[in-house]
Each structure stands twice: as C-alpha cells, then as structure tokens.
Amino acid sequence: MTIAPLTPPIQAPVQAVDHPKKGTWRRVLIAALLIYIFIPIVGLLRFSTRAANGISFQFYRDAFADPSFYSFLGNSLFAGLWTIAITLTLTTFTLYWAYLKARWLLPLMEMLSLLPFVVPAVTLGIGLIQVFTTPPLALTGTPQLLIGAYAIVTLPFAYRAVENSLQGANVLTLTEAAESLGASWWRIFIEIILPCVWSGVISGGLLVFSFVFGEFTLALFLVGSSYQTFPLYIQQLYSYQPQYSVVMSLLSFVATWLAAWLLVVFTRRKN
C-alpha cells in the first residue's frame, strides 16, 4: 500500500536494453519470484476447499451466505467511499491552489509521499486515540475518526495521481484565459480544471480504495469492535471459523488484483 506513491506508473522502458550478458539465472530468478507469490495463494485455495471426500466449495457458499460478512463489507465500502471523496477533493483543490498561488508548497507536498514510512499506522494510531478521547473531541470508536485518519494517510496516493495529470495541463494559462472571459473561479475549477485531472482522480480513487479495503492497524486502534471493517472481520473469524477467514483472504487478494488490473488498463487507455 505504501509503495504506490514512490514508483512511477508502469511504463515501457526508456530504451530496450538488449544486454549481451544474458544467462539462465535471469529466468530462474523471475520464476522463483512467481513461485514465491503463488505458493501462499495455493495454500489459501487448498485450505478453503479441503473436505473429507476430496474437494468441496461448501465453505465458499457458507462464508458468502453469512449476513455478517455483508455488514462488514458494507462498513469497509462506506469508509472507502468517504475517504475517496474527502482525500481527492482536498488534494485536487489544494494542488490546484498551490499551482496558482503558492508554488513553494509543491516540494513540501511531494515529501508527503514518504510520510507512511516515517509515521506508520501504529504511531498515528496511538497519537490519534489520545487526541480524540478527551471530551470535546471524543470520536474514538466512530467511523468519522477512521475516515479522517484514512483521508490523511491516503493523501500521498491521491497527490501522486492528481499531480501527474495536473502537470500535463497548463493550469495557469487555462485559469487566466477563463478569468479574462469572466468565469468565476468556482466555475473554472469545476468546468476547466476538473476535466483535466479526471484521469488522475480516478486512478487516485482506485489506489485509495484498495488501501482502505486492506487496512488493519488503524481500524484496530481507532474503532476496534465498534465499527468492524473487512480486515478486522477476517482476523476475528480466524479463531472460530478459519475456513471462512481463508475464503475472505482469497477474496482480498482477488480484490487487490482487480484494483491493480483496472489501474493498468486505465493508464494504458489514457496513453
């Protein structure tokens, strides 16, 4: 989750390097990575389909028939959508404003992408519970606090995605042109700037959503049992219905994959 803001979007190499020093070790290493990634997935598949007489998909049917699954999934969806709305609005607007009026802020905002490494979820979690337990701000256990925390933690993802598309558009000229034609700044933002960064907003949204869908530590610290998200559900289920929990783990892998795949499809279509 933390990696996305640091790597450029997947792209073709600057120049295809046909290195003369080829060897079989290359293929072996790539194969090893693939095996390392897939072996645990096979573990999940086997564990969730094992039955007394061969293979059965009973656990899948049961796990998805459990009504509590949908309530936890609903909680995660709710948190995810609100986080996307807040983070992306805040980032798009602030970035645009910084481009127009405070360029000195841009390098500072760039530094945000290293934030998750300096302030991991555990640190932010214990800080937040202490701020938000004292009466005027008693928000511990509420989804509002979790969403607020997620909105801050996911800023780097949104920043990277929006900034990529804002760079291409010449916002200063566009804004000046619109201003000289008498457009209000609100109209400029909605009708001119937003369409320019739309692709960045969508890829940022995908990244944010896939983060929220898998986030465990902040949820454990800030809301715990009072607002159970999908990862908390997976963890709790393990102690009494491990097979269900493994089915859900598999679902989380598929969801992460889907988000990554959509991101690639989306970036490719844009180019």
């Binding site: 996305a4 997947i10 693939l34 898998g214 783990s249």
Partner: peptide, 20 residues
Amino acid sequence: TLASVAANWGGVPLAFAMIA
C-alpha cells in the same frame, strides 16, 4: 502488475496464506 499486487497485499490475509 503481479509484483505490485504482492507488494501491496500484506497484512492479515497474507498471514493466513502463510499459515495455510
């Protein structure tokens, strides 16, 4: 894409996959 999925997919599900 697979690499970025694996790099991002940590946490609880990974732990259970490793146990399995």
